[in-house]
């Protein structure tokens, strides 16, 4: 867990990534890597370009220049669904749940490679399809249970409380079986108790073999959870290191910690 990241192989590598919107440089020549089995945090003030980095990794935005490698293979230029299939799953700041689908459907929709996912298979039907559907539904129920959402299977996502919606978002993310999880402010807006709960969950995910790239505003959480911290300011990386190093980095104190805490 707390071993130096360099002892592992990098799962994700960003090389000289740049993206501008009109004249605005959202991300500029950004390079960093994420080690398998680690928690890496991306921090920086508002407008530092963190969510843009997520959107570049997931293919929701195309980079102007630079490369992204996942497991040593280039993924930049692939459409979002192919990147997700390769094993990168993300959560959204604004959750983007399927509001008028049940909690169960929200999670079940995310399970990869389902038999009944194609039109033709669903038309043909058959016993094997039914069995597969039952199995997937059971998995979705299991995930909901793990996330303390048992009993809410049939509630529409929009009917859940904000905390429950965040849990549901996590459930949908986990159902994808992605290896690298990009979490965009997973604890924002949660009560202190739930923040603790989320931190525990995130740590257990890493223990279970996942790798996490985190955008987080709560400095305390970043320091506590991360193996590696990358600091961004106006689209550029201004520092990176283990949490202690970063904490003592004066420029970080100035541009980020000083402002937001």
């Amino acid at each position: 867990m707390s071993t130096s990241p360099s002892s592992n192989s990098p799962l994700l590598v960003l090389e000289d990534l740049s993206k501008s919107f009109g004249g605005l440089r959202a991300v500029h020549e950004l390079s960093f890597s994420v080690q398998a089995g680690s928690i890496t945090s991306l921090i920086g003030g508002n407008g530092a370009g963190k969510t843009t980095v997520f959107n570049l990794i997931t293919g929701n935005l195309g980079a102007d220049s630079g490369h992204i490698l996942f497991r040593g293979r280039r993924i930049d230029g692939l459409p979002p669904h192919k990147i997700a299939r390769a094993g990168i799953a993300r959560s959204f700041q604004d959750l983007r749940l399927f509001s008028r689908l049940s909690a169960l459907d929200n999670v079940a929709a995310a399970i990869p490679q389902q038999r009944g996912e194609s039109l033709l298979a669903s038309l043909l039907g058959g016993a094997r399809l039914k069995a597969a559907n039952r199995e997937n539904e059971a998995r979705a129920r299991g995930l909901l249970e793990q996330l303390t959402l048992a009993g809410h299977e049939e509630s529409l996502a929009e009917q859940l409380s904000y905390g429950q919606q965040k849990l549901l978002g996590l459930g949908r993310l986990l159902a994808t079986e992605g290896e690298l999880l990009l979490l965009d402010e997973p604890t924002a807006g949660l009560s202190p108790g739930m923040v603790e709960d989320f931190c525990g969950r995130i740590r257990r995910l890493v223990d279970a073999g996942k790798t996490i790239l985190l955008i987080e505003h709560n400095v305390e959480i970043v320091m506590r959870l991360s193996d590696w911290v990358v600091v961004m300011h106006q689209g550029e990386k201004i520092a990176e290191g283990v949490p202690e190093e970063v904490r003592h980095n004066v420029s970080v104190m100035h541009t980020y910690l000083g402002i937001s805490s």
């Binding site: 929701n60 979002p80 997700a84 459907d105 929709a109 389902q114």
Partner: peptide, 23 residues
């Protein structure tokens, strides 16, 4: 079917559907 679930998911949020690895 699961396909129908994806239809409704597309109606709700296309970006989220593609983030789940579905085209």
């Amino acid at each position: 079917s699961p396909f129908g679930r994806l239809l409704r998911a597309v109606r709700e949020d296309q970006t989220a559907v593609s983030s789940l690895g579905k085209s």
